[in-house]
């Protein structure tokens, strides 16, 4: 008889949670290997946006802090890359939502829930896989940035901190993605989330400085949590386009930590409650 022994102690339970979470993570990694198409497509898509904005629109972009424009478009690509690092983290939300809804729709989530595995593993595994994916995406974007002339001008600690902030934001976005994935039922909802990523990204300092927008719109863009991470990393990389007069731009570094933590504080409990509500 093949039987399993349920964990008795807290240590056993923790060991199970880690092992099960890793098994679920490995499932996603196996997807990349067996079906690399979607991963490659999403990487190429981000590279394409860099090229599109860097070379197609870049020449026409007014750079903040330099009246009259006329600067080399190389400056715009320096301005663009921190925005793109953050945009790729935002694109990850659609992938999280899509994976969570697909599992729910195909009954895989129910199978997991009816198994004697650690209940946290489904979510922990998803989160770990998405973080690993985010690191891969970021590495590709860094290489892409180097290719188009972007450089980190700060020291090593500043550069490392900047990337940590980008990943911290992705970590926060995972919980939004899991929460939305548990609410959304059909593929239409997933498409909607993916479509909304663009206006949300445009309404930040990723592509243009909020100071060039009409007053109220600029304020919304400045208070967009994405903007704080973008501004803080521009500052840490020593790329142009950071700074501003408003409180939120003056405290970009602080807010690049506060916003993600706030999002986690809101969406982690929501996601956990939603997951528990599957039993209602």
């Amino acid at each position: 008889m093949t039987t399993s022994v349920l964990p008795q102690t807290a240590t056993d339970r923790l060991r199970w949670a880690v092992a099960d979470g890793w098994t679920v993570t490995r499932r996603d990694l196996a997807h990349w290997v067996r079906q690399p198409g979607p991963v490659i497509f999403s990487l190429l898509f981000s590279v394409m946006i860099v090229l599109m904005f860097g070379y197609l629109f870049g020449g026409a972009m007014a750079m903040p802090g330099r009246a009259g424009g006329g600067q080399a478009s190389g400056d715009y690509r320096e301005f663009l890359m921190p925005g793109m690092f953050v945009m790729t983290m935002l694109f990850g939300v659609g992938e999280t939502v899509s994976a969570v809804t697909a599992d729910a729709r195909k009954g895989v989530t129910d199978r997991f829930r009816a198994m004697p595995m650690a209940p946290s593993a489904v979510v922990v595994g998803r989160g770990t896989a998405d973080m690993l994916n985010a690191i891969l995406v970021l590495l590709v974007m860094i290489a892409c940035g180097f290719a188009v002339g972007w450089r980190a001008h700060g020291g090593v600690p500043e550069t490392v901190l900047a990337f940590v902030l980008v990943l911290l934001l992705r970590f926060a976005l995972i919980w939004i993605g899991i929460y939305l994935g548990l609410i959304i039922k059909g593929e239409e909802g997933v498409t909607m989330v993916q479509t909304l990523e663009f206006p949300l990204g445009f309404l930040s300092s990723a592509f243009v400085a909020p100071s060039t927008m009409p007053g109220w719109l600029g304020a919304v863009a400045e208070w967009n949590p994405l903007s704080s991470t973008i501004l803080a990393t521009r500052e840490l990389f020593g790329n142009p386009g950071w700074g501003g007069d408003s409180w939120i731009t003056q405290h970009a570094l602080l807010m690049a930590i506060v916003w993600p933590l706030l999002l986690v504080a809101i969406f982690f409990p929501l996601a956990v409650r939603r997951y528990a509500a599957l039993g209602r």
Partner: peptide, 25 residues
């Protein structure tokens, strides 16, 4: 359940191995 609740990207063997690991084999 009513849907065949297996991972469609993985092979049959990979599916069973994954579930086996989640049963703590």
């Amino acid at each position: 359940g009513q849907h065949a609740a297996v991972d469609e990207v993985l092979s049959g063997k990979q599916n069973l191995e994954m579930f086996g690991r989640l049963y703590h084999l």
